[in-house]
Design a binder for these strands. Structure first.
Lengths: 218, 218
DNA sequence: CTTCTCAAGGACTAGATGGTCCAATAAAAG
DNA sequence: CTTTTATTGGACCATCTAGTCCTTGAGAAG
């Protein structure tokens, strides 16, 4: 499985395969629960039950709840970046952006916009109560935006986008539209606003397309 | 004070001025606390202490915590709509939108993007745990968007915007950019992404401005 | 003034929840 | 095999927190 190494332990204690598997099970369960019901609304007993473990195992692998939460932040961030990298690392045309948009919309429409973006919801919930989690999330957002802006850079270098396009700003705007779209879709239980928001951002990027596509402007 | 009637009690019991004042004090304190530290992280004892009241008063005026939370949602929603109406009801030019944008950015820059939008953060925190709160928030977002789209309609009717502009979609896009901007600014503790996001949305609206401004296209 | 209802104070309770501890077991090392 | 260490089970504890209850005080109505 591709996300096997995402939850690598950070300590240098001797650790067995069984221990690793347990830790992974806890992380995966905590991630899932915190996604659907929020971080603060998820209790350690919920995690214990969902992961088929015991209290001592929770505290064997994590110092306390805050430590577990931070591990979930890291875990989920790694998953998102991994997924997004797969979808964006070969981005080199506007139609590629459209495909990327469609994939996100489709995934979110499966549950009628519920739950929103795993990163965005955590960001709002944690950034005012755990500085370390906040900065981790901020860095993850930056990495995500970079995947986008790298793609836009390639498009600009190849002449698809005009020279006056600013990949960083376009990426930030697209990310904001995505996050705002997730939020509105979540509140409305309807993906429509997310589509509108993403289409706005794509339209904006489209306005920076070169007149004669395909050839570098040299 | 202009927000005096925002927290009108809903029951038909006889109620004294002192009771109303107490209720208002509780609501105001709960609103403030839940804004800075989140709904779930705010305890009733926090509210009791901050509002200089007692447990019995909390439960005299509100059935339970959920009832208080819903009252806060209504209260905050009313405040936001009131504020936004003041800023948007006379909107009739693009420069008016820019002024609106600047006011929001400036307000949020006062605390370096912290706390985000009072509605947006509540929406993400509550929409998966209180259906009634979610739908109230969803309606508030709709009312907010309507203030924007009404302004855009006026701009289109007066010829400032072209006929092919879609005020509803533009308003949704702008709202998503705003909410996404709040979220990213909150995560980064920096208003910059919020500015970029709003500028993207404004630029998009700008692309629908008529060539010869001022005159109706008739 | 008397009475009645609303409002307020604050002790108290039940249960949830984060966290601790210790004994028992599996697995690795020598 | 023996020893050591990681791992696990689960009882237990302290605290926090939502919610209850009873008493007292204040103000309006008669």
């Amino acid at each position: 499985m591709s996300d096997e190494q995402v939850a690598a332990p950070t300590n240098q204690r001797r650790i067995s395969q069984r221990g690793i598997a347990t830790r992974e099970r806890i992380l995966e369960a905590a991630n899932r629960l915190m996604f659907v019901r929020g971080v603060n609304a998820t209790t350690l007993d919920d995690v214990r039950e969902a992961s088929q473990t015991s209290k001592s195992q929770l505290y064997h692998h994590f110092a306390d709840k805050q430590d577990l939460v931070r591990a979930v932040v890291r875990y989920r961030g790694a998953l998102v970046i991994q997924r997004e990298r797969a979808g964006l690392e070969r981005l080199k045309s506007f139609s590629g952006l459209v495909r990327w948009r469609n994939a996100l919309v489709q995934a979110n429409s499966l549950n009628n916009g519920k739950y929103g973006c795993g990163l965005g919801s955590m960001a709002l919930e944690l950034s005012d109560q755990d500085e370390q989690a906040r900065s981790m999330l901020s860095e993850t957002f930056a990495a995500w935006e970079k995947l986008i802006s790298d793609g836009l850079h390639r498009m600009r270098d190849s002449g698809v986008l005009r020279q006056d396009a600013d990949p960083e700003k376009l990426a930030t705007g697209l990310m904001a539209a995505l996050q705002g779209g997730y939020l509105l879709a979540n509140a409305a239980h309807d993906v429509a606003p997310m589509e509108v928001a993403l289409d706005m951002a794509l339209e904006h990027i489209k306005s920076f397309l070169s007149e004669q596509p395909g050839e570098p402007t040299r």
